[in-house]
Design a protein around this nucleic acid. Structure first.
Lengths: 329, 329
DNA sequence: CTGAAAGCGCTAACAC
DNA sequence: GTGTTAGCGCTTTCAG
């Protein structure tokens, strides 16, 4: 069942059918009705492949994610999907698994599929990726990452500030022995900036910066647990810990639990992202809030051009208070 | 840059280029090398739209999910994505939001995109969906759901048995006052069967079935929390609760926490799914394990036909023991 | 082995 | 208003 069949049955030309189908102008109400009627009872569906091939957009975008299993990613995905669907775009998900070869393979696939745009999340933009992006010849937008070398538009929060604020918050609550479970010092996106923010806050408040108070993880639960375990060994006196992700914070919580420490009585914890996880885990995790869904929504809006043209967008962060932080007196 | 340009530059016909590109037969090593060389330094990428249009498959599948934000869905998605990627399929995600109109709209879109198959997850298959599926003219596979009316292949676990086993487990641990936080009695997929399994286990062990011991939720965190809250009112004497999802179990845990009850000392909890969440939340949730990723993997394998042809597949479940259940003596 | 040509289904000039 | 037709880029007979 093609446009041709419809044309024949309605006694018009394919051009006319195409016109009414795309509600353009150039046909009478009468023919329009006739065509529509024929289509109605004939189970016809337009073929997007053909449509796209002959010059139009493909109405699909690619979403490159470093992983699929975390609330951060889920919520971001949800934000993207919701907005995309509203704009009649379909989204192709690509789990890069933080692997170069895999990412490149996806990029090639997206090119073959002629997607109208791609959203690149949370990872560092390498030279190779940059080249692949150029080949893509579509719009690219960075989310929760950015590139100091290449000027792709980005949407993120101010990680340094957010981290600084979280630590300042703990200090304000009376904490002085504050540890941090951060990412890697080599990670210029979510690693370094957050670590720097932590140190800056301590320094600004005239607190000593002790390197034995910082442990590194890779943002997931297990690494957070391990990091906290080592922190206990190195600095049993600490009263608070700030983790660079909710999952690591929950890992810390878990570690505390296993060490017979109570949260927040014996240890205060602040997470990062404020995903659903923060609200779920008892006693409720105080966390730096990132407007995750909005990050996704905005990315799509940038791609479809319904957003002003800017170099980048920094969204505001905040702190969601729950019960994992105790005020020391 | 099209196949035509390559053909011209290599001094052959488009047919030949197409042949070597799809590594078929019918060309000499010499021409093959020549063509490949030209392609190499010309940034050519095949156009999948054109390729698909002229009869081939689209190499893409649609994945219909009831929601995007839960570990169950994330892990399933991950299973699907991994397998699909290995088979060079791209997956288009569709968040139905459990909404009929939205689902139908997605189904139409998937038809327009001529996907090679669709995976329908966790929801009840209505007449309307069934009609839309028929229109699709591609393979459809049901995951974590099935249809007694229409014979679509399905992949799931035995919910009734799984639930029965969970409750039997609690009974074996000495519990007698066991509550359940289930889905809706009207939900023939994850609601009724699990509720029935609960009752059957009690009955089989000669324990009374008290309706005030069962509360209903909709599988998410908040509903689990509310359900547990009502349970405390109705039956403060209970020693254990079995929830039909990990999220509801965590909701129950949260409720217990707020009521000053300790888990597992004052209340034992068993969850359902055994997602990452079960392992993350202290003290560690004992849960019925569903091989979620495998569910997804198998679904893709069915679609690409690398799986035997069967009416349905029931995967085995098990119980993962952690620390949320206390043995009563 | 290789090429010419007929589609795949639709859009967009360009005529009438 | 409406029809004709030339593509869009690729695959696939059918010849040679």
């Amino acid at each position: 069942m093609t446009i041709k069949d419809i044309a024949r049955q309605a006694g018009v030309s394919v051009a006319t059918v195409s016109r009414v189908l795309n509600n353009q102008t150039g046909f009478s109400e009468a023919t329009k009705d006739r065509v529509l009627r024929v289509i109605e009872n004939s189970g016809y569906t337009r073929n997007d492949l053909a449509r796209s091939l002959s010059g139009k957009r493909t109405q699909s975008i690619g979403l490159l994610l470093p992983s699929l299993t975390s609330y951060f990613v889920s919520e971001l995905l949800s934000g993207v999907e919701t907005r995309a669907h509203a704009a009649d775009l379909s989204v192709i998900i690509c789990d890069t698994d933080q692997d170069g070869a895999r990412t490149l393979k996806y990029l090639r696939m997206l090119r073959e599929k002629r997607v109208d745009g791609v959203i690149f999340v949370s990872e560092w933009l390498t030279d190779e990726y940059k080249k692949a992006f150029d080949l893509l010849q579509t719009r690219v937008v960075l989310v929760s990452t950015y590139s100091p070398l290449y000027s792709f538009p980005y949407i993120k929060i101010d990680d340094y500030r957010a981290s600084y604020d979280a630590v300042a918050y703990l200090i304000q609550r009376g904490h002085r022995q504050i540890a941090m479970i951060g990412g890697s010092e080599d990670d210029p996106i979510a690693g370094k900036p957050r670590l720097d923010g932590y140190r800056a806050a301590l320094k600004h408040h005239n607190l000593p910066i002790r390197e034995e108070y910082v442990a590194h993880g890779d943002f997931d639960f297990r690494s957070g647990m391990r990091a906290m375990d080592t922190l206990w060994d190195r600095a049993p006196q600490l009263t608070a810990v700030f983790a660079a992700s909710d999952e690591m914070a929950v890992g810390a919580l878990n570690s505390a639990h296993r060490h017979g420490k109570r949260v927040p009585d014996d240890l205060s914890i602040v997470g990062f992202d404020d995903t659903q996880l923060a609200e779920m885990v008892p006693p409720g995790l105080t966390a730096v809030r990132q407007p995750v869904r909005e990050l996704g929504r905005r990315a799509v809006e940038y791609l479809i051009g319904s957003s002003e043209d800017v170099a980048g967008i920094i969204l505001p962060h905040s702190i969601t208070e729950r019960a994992s932080v105790r005020t020391l007196t």
